[in-house]
Structures are given as C-alpha cells and as structure tokens.
C-alpha cells in the first residue's frame, strides 16, 4: 500500500470509531429520527434539533429507564 492509501484508510478508521463512539453516547438519535421521518412521512416537516431533544427528554420523563447496579 502506498502512503496516501494508508492515510486514507487511517482516516476512514478514525471516522468509523468517532461515529461508533457518538452512537454509543446517543448523539446519533436525531439523525436516526430524520432518516425515519424522511422514509415514512415525507409530507409534514420533521421536528427541529431543539424540538427533538426536548421531546426525547420529555419521553424519558414519562418512561424512565433503569440503570443497573
């Protein structure tokens, strides 16, 4: 492999890891919602970022998740 290829691959791996980490932290939730919205209700506008995260924590308020010991 040439040097640019190695660099290219390293960058891809780093991106993949960052994406994975953000996913584990829960940051990808809005993007997932947007994707879902686009697929299913192309009519109405989706929630904005702010609205989505508000809605998310409001739902957590109503449906608490346990955390283990």
């Amino acid at each position: 492999m040439s040097v640019p290829q190695v660099l290219h691959r390293a960058r891809d791996t780093a991106r993949e890891l960052a994406w994975l980490f953000k996913g584990v932290m829960g940051e990808n939730a809005y993007q997932a919602y947007l994707d879902h919205h686009e697929r299913t209700h192309p009519g109405g506008p989706p929630m904005t970022v702010r609205e989505f995260w508000r809605d998310k924590t409001d739902r957590q308020d109503a449906n608490p998740e346990g955390r283990c010991c």
Binding site: G23, A29, Y33, D35, H36, R59, G66, C68, C69
Partner: peptide
C-alpha cells in the same frame, strides 16, 4: 414498530455499547 424514537433499529456495535453501559455499574 419503527417510530424513529424509542423503536429505532440501531447498529449492533452501537447497541452493544448502549446495552453494556446500561447493565454495567458499581455491582
């Protein structure tokens, strides 16, 4: 049941991390 919120198909490696973070604690 996909609703893009609670029911959302999630990459298996991401979900592994999620699940692990939820089960692992001080115990």
């Amino acid at each position: 049941k996909a609703d893009g919120k609670d029911y959302a198909a999630t990459d298996r490696r991401v979900l592994f991390g999620h699940h692990f973070a939820a089960i692992a604690g001080a115990g």
